[in-house]
């Protein structure tokens, strides 16, 4: 692979700007979300695990009511970036985050910010379905209970299950253990569990990698429905999936550090999904999406 060159990862695209555009026009021109529609943003994000530099200087904005896909080879830091977006990295004792991650313009790593409040607004769905070893009903009700949500719990549970199209499949066995569901149903249950607390942003870390193609397709349909109400960021290894569901795609790669040889993840290119997959600017993106990568 080419060493991380000094050239800007964002070369001018299509037509050069004239310099008199508004910020919104410049963003649109570069394939970024309109600044007024940005829900979350990473500014100079660096992540370390102990002395290991996992992610280097990521600047990335996520559009409201959009699906943003993070793609790239294994070890490129895309999951690490995702886990910074709701401070899940706090659970790893050696992890250290530098830079800013803003949500509605507020730095979620700020001094006064409570990570628990952050996670109530920014939910997460994991790679392996991880329902609690409780009943289907209790899995959904767990979140609303702990945050003290008002309202009829039966109604909250039913709504979450209907949104994820699970209701008809499980309505007669809400008291059964969630582990009795199939893998795809378990993952939809985890999405329902996440939705039940009414988050604003949903992070998905390779949500379909443990599922069969039919279940995958259902979850992809669900994501497209969900983006009307939520903003979604998804990490995926499946490039077709990114191409099918996402509005914008960020391509990450890992480059070896010159002194230590450790591979540090970095953002290569971020653009509208259609352009990333048909007309990428960076050679590394092109190699990856066309399958010529390493």
């Amino acid at each position: 692979m080419e060493p991380a060159s000094t050239t800007s990862t964002r070369a001018p695209v299509i037509e050069p700007l004239t310099g008199v555009e508004t910020a919104a026009e410049r963003a649109r021109h570069r394939g970024l979300p309109d600044p007024a529609d940005v829900v979350m943003e990473c500014l100079g994000l660096n992540v370390f695990y102990g002395s290991f530099h996992a992610v280097h200087d990521v600047n990335l904005s996520f559009g409201r009511n959009e699906i943003t896909a993070l793609i790239g080879p294994s070890g490129c830091g895309k999951s690490t970036v995702l886990r910074c977006l709701n401070r899940m990295n706090d659970l790893i004792p050696s992890a250290r985050v530098e830079g800013e991650v803003t949500y509605d313009g507020i730095d979620i790593y700020g001094r006064a910010v409570d990570p628990i409040e952050v996670r109530r607004r920014i939910g997460m769905v994991f790679q392996k379905p991880n329902p609690f070893p409780k009943s289907i009903y209790d899995n959904i009700a767990y979140g609303p209970k702990i945050i003290g949500m008002d309202g009829d719990m039966d109604h909250i549970v039913e709504r979450a299950l209907r949104v994820t199209a699970l209701w008809d499949e499980v309505k007669d066995r809400l008291d059964d253990n969630a582990y009795g569901l199939s893998g795809g149903q378990q993952q939809r249950l985890c999405i329902a569990r996440c939705i039940a607390v009414s988050p604003d942003v949903i992070l998905m870390d390779e949500p379909c990698s443990a599922l069969d193609p039919v279940s995958t397709s259902r979850i992809e349909d669900l994501m497209v429905e969900l983006k009307e109400r939520y903003s979604i960021v998804i990490v995926t290894h499946n490039m077709q999936q990114a191409a099918r569901v996402s509005d914008r795609t960020a391509f990450f790669t890992a480059s070896p550090d010159e002194t230590t040889g450790n591979r540090t993840g970095m953002l290569v290119e971020y653009d509208k999904t259609a352009r990333i997959f048909t007309n990428p600017v960076d050679k590394r993106t092109e190699d990856y999406i066309s399958g010529r990568f390493g």
Partner: peptide, 20 residues
């Protein structure tokens, strides 16, 4: 994964420990 699932719903460490 169970801890992460609960933490991602906004459960505090004590709740994760006691309820999950």
């Amino acid at each position: 994964g169970l801890r992460e699932g609960a933490a991602a719903l906004g459960a505090s460490r004590m709740r994760v420990a006691l309820r999950v």
